[in-house]
Design a binder for these strands. Structure first.
Length: 401
DNA sequence: TAACCGTGGAG
DNA sequence: TCTCCAAGGTT
């Protein structure tokens, strides 16, 4: 069998396998390009089983591009809470606004236009165009690279961007006439169900007969993929400051970067693990650093530790409780914050404290720094939190989910 | 190019 | 417990 025949056979058999039966997924029940789009964004680096409930809630709340474009951002983030990679949500809404304004609310059936939308890269544009419009565009994700690496016995490192470009060329050649959407989904379906990362199920594979990787006995060692760097450890000190009325001090993260615009307990990075782990230096560092930001708290009780692993960071979070959280500059509680009024942060701490009343009931002058808020249980449930803080606060508010 | 960006399931 | 990594994109 020559090379062309091998490719043709692969495509025909794979497509037939897919059409014989595939998974019943929510976004496959619709031909709405918007639904395809939403699903593809959610599926970036995220498993199908995880996405399904999020997808259902999302399209129920935002049934059209226009609904999404007009929604408050906090509403969109709340529907993304727990799914991770939150810039996807903000980019999706920004793109929905662009589709509404420039394309009248309809996803354009056009390669350049789709590729130009925020959050849509080479994979996602190919997926949208092929699945929604049956355009013969490749959609090369991790599944596809694994399948092609094995079937064609390709040794290139799939972690390198250049390899994906090459795979796209190959995948483009493989698309059967008039069947781009089904074929691209077939490739991914095979990778997800049969040609799995470990222990591929070659015995039940529809294309095993001509699979060069299997024939070479290399199905377990392909694809070649260089290892990712381990996440960098970071030791963080957080404060759970409780007001007399039960409200807790929280703050919203900046609009850019990690966990952008999500809510969290105030926390700072410890200068080292020793400070983090010290019952004296830890809370002192926490109070002094927050004082410099204009927040006066007196952390006294170690409530517990939490751990959270991101793709590139490993957080060790120590949570300190602060009762009657706020101090008054010249009052008795000022001494509960060692050095705050004397050392480096003295001026800032004094300035901060001026806004609080003596009883620790909260603000007397409404001068919490930008982004900070006293929240109750209802606020906690309405706002969007990263998982690590949602767990901590769920415990505090009595299991509220 | 390489770093940045979350979370959870599977083995 | 630990490692891998999933329907990637942006900077």
């Amino acid at each position: 069998m020559n090379e062309l025949e091998a490719k043709t056979t692969f495509s025909r058999e794979l497509l037939a396998w897919y059409r014989r039966g595939n998974r019943d997924l929510p976004w496959r029940r619709s031909r709405d390009p918007y639904f395809i789009w939403v699903s593809e964004i959610m599926l970036q680096q995220t498993r199908v089983d995880t996405v399904i409930p999020y997808f259902n809630r999302f399209v129920e709340r935002f049934p059209t591009v226009k609904d999404l474009a007009e929604a408050p951002e906090e509403d969109v983030l709340k529907h993304w809470e727990g799914l991770g990679y939150y810039s996807r949500a903000r980019n999706l809404q920004a793109a929905a606004k662009e589709v509404t304004e420039r394309y009248g609310g309809r996803i354009p059936d056009d390669v350049e236009a789709v590729r130009g939308l925020k959050g849509v890269g080479p994979y996602t544009s190919g997926a949208i165009l092929s699945i929604a419009f049956n355009r013969p565009e490749p959609a090369v994700d991790g599944n596809v690279m694994r399948v092609l690496s094995r079937y064609f016995c390709i040794d290139e490192d799939i972690a390198k961007p250049a390899t994906r470009v090459g795979m796209e060329g190959l995948a483009r050649e493989l698309i059967p006439e008039g069947a781009a959407g089904d074929f691209n989904q077939a490739l991914m379906e095979l990778g997800a169900l049969v040609c799995t990362p470990r222990s591929p199920h070659c015995l039940t594979c529809p294309v095993m007969e001509h699979c060069a990787g299997r024939i070479a006995g290399r199905e377990e060692e392909l694809p070649v993929k260089s290892k990712a760097k381990p996440p960098k450890p970071q030791h963080r000190l957080a404060v759970l400051a409780k007001r007399a009325d039960g409200r807790v001090l929280a703050r919203q993260r900046p609009a850019q970067g990690l966990l952008a615009r999500l809510w969290e307990l105030p926390h700072v990075e410890a200068p080292g693990v020793d400070t983090w782990d010290s019952a004296e230096a830890g809370p002192r560092w926490l109070a002094e650093t927050l004082a410099l930001e204009g927040v006066g708290v007196a952390p006294t009780r170690h409530l517990g530790d939490a751990e959270h692993v991101f793709s590139h960071l490993h957080w060790y979070v120590r949570v300190w409780g602060a009762e009657g959280a706020l101090f008054e500059a010249d009052g008795p509680e000022a001494s509960a914050l060692p050095m705050a009024a004397s050392a480096a942060g003295g001026d800032a701490a004094r300035e901060t404290a001026a806004g609080y009343d003596a009883a620790g009931e909260g603000l007397s002058g409404g001068s919490l720094p930008e982004g900070y808020r006293w929240i109750d249980r209802a606020d906690f449930e309405a706002l969007a939190w990263p998982n690590v803080f949602r767990k901590i606060l769920a415990e505090h508010f009595g299991g509220a989910e």
